[in-house]
Computed example of a mutant assay.
Amino acid sequence: MSEKNGPIGVFDSGYGGLTVFKEIVKQLPEYDYLYLGDNARVPYGTRSFETVYKYTWECVQHLFEKGCKLVILACNTASAKALRSIQQNNIPNLPDFRRVLGVIRPTAEIVGELTKTRKVGILATQGTISSESYVLEIGKFFPDIDVVQEACPMWVPLVENNEFNSNGADYFIQKNLNNILEKVSDIDTLILACTHYPLLLGKIKQYLPGNVQVVSQGGLVAASLKDYMVRHPEIERLCSKGGISEFYTTESTESFNEKAAIFLGHQVFSKHLALH
């Protein structure tokens, strides 16, 4: 078994995972990180289970090859469509110690503490909605909670094209929020179940009643990872500590650097990763 320490891998199909990455680094700054965005093959949200699993596993393997022992799928679509297969079918067959975690379970575990009416809304891509992953995961922990869902297909393009502060964004955000609030009258908690959506938070709050809270995943995932490290010292000791972050993209580094700055609030210099 290889015991050499390595960075924590953070994977997303594109840029949205940077909102989770940012919170993880904020809460666990001492570790090294390697972020990989599969920007060449976005979007994942509209692709089949088989394709998302294939793409996600390819990228996870690249992170393993670069020394990561622990990988976070900071992507709801990948967590919904690929995580279980990777954990059950791929990880057990590896020659040495590896772990892959997602973003859905940390959110599902905490939502029961957030809602009083026991009515929760999920805002996500069509792929995440179709997977029913949030409905199933929340049901495991809190079977009394009524979960309603709304696919928001225009929200990711608005963010990725830097249009999230435009008037066009207002139209689509208001439309989707009205849709989900009409489904169940007393929703008091909305989960942003796509890592792009926190950039729309300011506009989302404009169109919600004051009694409805909006939950972003980044802080929840980071807190869950911090707790995971305490509970699993055998994994924690394999994660290198130096406070260094590296960024890789499967597409144009210039484009990645420009858009990553929008998500992180500071400039990054990424490297290109060629897929096999």
Rank of each mutant, 00 (worst) to 15 (best):
P106S: 09
Q87E: 14
G139P: 10
S245H: 06
E3M: 12
Y248R: 05
N162M: 07
G168M: 11
F141R: 02
K81Y: 01
Y228N: 04
F141N: 07
Q149Y: 10
H62I: 11
L192C: 00
F21G: 04
L101K: 06
A82P: 08
N179R: 12
T253L: 05
E65I: 03
L136N: 15
G242P: 09
W155Y: 04
C75A: 08
H276K: 15
Y171C: 10
E234Y: 11
C68M: 03
I110R: 14
G139K: 07
Q88C: 09
S133F: 00
D146R: 15
E150Q: 15
S185K: 14
C59E: 05
I180C: 03
G265P: 04
T77M: 03
Y44C: 03
E113Q: 15
A124G: 09
Q27G: 06
T115I: 07
V268M: 06
G17L: 01
K259Q: 14
F49C: 10
L181R: 07
I191Y: 00
Y207G: 04
T51V: 10
Y55L: 12
D144V: 08
N167V: 13
E160V: 02
E3I: 13
I244Y: 10
K205S: 05
F64A: 03
P233V: 12
I91A: 05
P157T: 08
S255H: 08
M229Y: 13
D170C: 03
Q213M: 08
R41I: 01
G17A: 02
R105K: 15
S130Y: 08
